[in-house]
Nucleic acid binder design. Structure first.
Length: 415
RNA sequence: GCGGGCGUCGCCAAGCGGUUAAGGCCUCGGAUUGUGGUUCCGAUAUUCGGGGGUUCGAAUCCCCUCGCUCGCCCCA
């Protein structure tokens, strides 16, 4: 019997872990420089939290969640992390912490979908959430951070798309106007759109079906989409956001009136960053403002904005730096001495490994060479007898005899 | 949930009905009983994802199944 990783899950193997460490380290630096603090929440929560928080009519909740029963409670693996962070925010009374509260997270998310390029069932997101600022300066900071993180990885061909989907009040109005406009032609739309018409009409704007796209471009409907039907405060929020973005030197974005995010909690600002080198699943970052969510989940009315980056998707695009080479490889006739000296050398802050097989010198040295180590520390019979080491520079091939570890470090000190 | 492509050693692969399933990389051993990264030699798949069938004979043909992969949908 052999076992394989489950469909849509992947092992992160030893020779790729440094890519992850690199991404984590670089993004952590950027986010913490902007005073965001890390939060780690559980990977499962009450199913109810996601049903309410993400929205039970969304695909994510309706058909992509891993749920299970435990003593009569329905639990779910998190499909995204905003709901969990908001739950923690409320549970720990974080609204009493100095405002704004800026959090970041990274970790695995789970969605039961058919895997394909850029889409797994267990995948990783890096995200930020900013609580307590209702003005668009917060939207701007958060968007700028996303751009900074992505550009730090040398990602080109990025496209920032931006939209304002209004607040609960004006969005309803907008929805109704859209439905009115679509109604006469509803029968020509695809099956999915006809369902969306009832459940969540704004999602029709997001349909990729060519026919639907054509219909949306027809005069009566397009006017509604481009007609800025959102309320004056929402429009003002958007105008100001654009001013802030300009201050931050973010000017090459596209306003996409048809950008509607798939999660129910967003209001006003929504955005997406896509990369045209990615193929079909081309979103690397998605986010927006979600002012109603905290109170919806039972907390005090608190405005918030955030985003999430798909880590696997950026990994497929970046060329990571080389991993750090090993400092020292110990070659010895005595396994005991090799082990002991590896330990001594590590205590002093060097990385060190040894050959555990007790093979002959040529093989041990071959292993040392292939390990990529900078130095071989040779401890043969003769060295052991005279209490010395032979240090070989594996790059230049030079070697010399030194007296004890102290002599070795003295030698390293000169390099 | 619906479509397309693919499954031969840890990895990359040749083979496309005829007795022992190329080759390369990696790994291991030897040349080299204390000196590597070069070179040379040698070892490693009773078996071709799995199960049936056709045939004197199958990795090669047929059926089923499993897995991977790409796209739709959805999203990070």
């Amino acid at each position: 019997m052999t076992y394989r990783a489950q469909k849509g899950t992947k092992d992160i193997l030893p020779y790729e872990s440094h890519i992850w460490q690199y991404i984590e380290q670089v993004s952590k630096k950027i986010l913490e420089d902007a005073n965001y603090k890390e939060i780690r929440t559980p990977i499962f929560e009450a199913t109810e939290l996601f049903a309410r928080g993400v929205g039970d009519s969304t695909d994510i909740v309706a058909k992509e969640m891993y749920t299970f029963e435990q003593k009569g409670r329905s639990l779910a693996l998190r499909p995204e992390n905003t709901a969990g962070v908001v739950r923690a925010f409320i549970e720990h009374g974080m609204h009493r912490l100095p405002s704004p509260l800026k959090l970041w997270y990274k970790g695995p998310m789970f969605r039961y979908e058919r895997p394909q390029a850029g889409r797994q069932r267990q995948f990783h997101q890096l995200g930020v959430e900013l609580f307590g600022v209702s003005g668009p300066s917060a939207d701007a900071e958060v968007i700028q951070l996303a751009m900074q993180v992505l550009s730090e990885f040398g990602l080109d061909n990025l496209m920032l798309e931006l939209n304002n989907i209004g607040c609960p009040g004006c969005r309803n109005e907008y929805k109704n106007r859209l439905k009115q406009a679509i109604a006469p032609k509803l029968s020509e739309f695809c099956v999915d759109c006809r369902l969306r018409y009832e459940r969540n009409p704004l999602r029709i704007l997001d349909c990729k079906n060519e026919k639907c796209i054509g219909l949306l471009a027809s005069p009566g409907i397009e006017q509604v989409i481009c007609g800025d039907l959102i309320c004056e405060p929402c429009k003002e929020h958007f105008r100001e956001l654009r001013e802030y973005l300009e201050v931050l030197n973010i000017t090459s974005y596209k306003i996409n009136k048809r950008l509607v995010r798939g999660l129910d909690y967003y209001n006003r600002t929504v955005f997406e960053i896509t990369c045209n080198e990615l193929g079909s699943q081309n979103a690397v970052c998605g986010g927006g403002r979600y002012d109603p969510l905290v109170s919806m989940l039972g907390g005090p009315d608190t405005p918030a904005v955030g985003w999430a980056i798909g880590m696997e998707r950026i990994i497929s695009l970046i060329a990571p730096p080389e991993g750090k080479p090993l400092d020292i490889f110990i070659v010895s006739d005595s396994l005991k001495e090799a082990l002991k000296n590896a330990f001594e050398v590590r205590k002093l802050g060097f990385s060190a490994d040894l050959d555990f097989s007790g093979r002959k010198f040529s093989k041990q040295l071959e292993k040392a060479s292939k390990s990529g180590a900078k130095y071989a520390l040779i401890l043969g019979e003769e060295e052991l007898r005279t209490n010395t080491f032979t240090v070989k520079n594996l790059v230049s091939g030079e070697q010399q005899r030194v007296a004890g570890l102290a002599g070795f470090f003295k030698l390293l000190g000169h390099n």
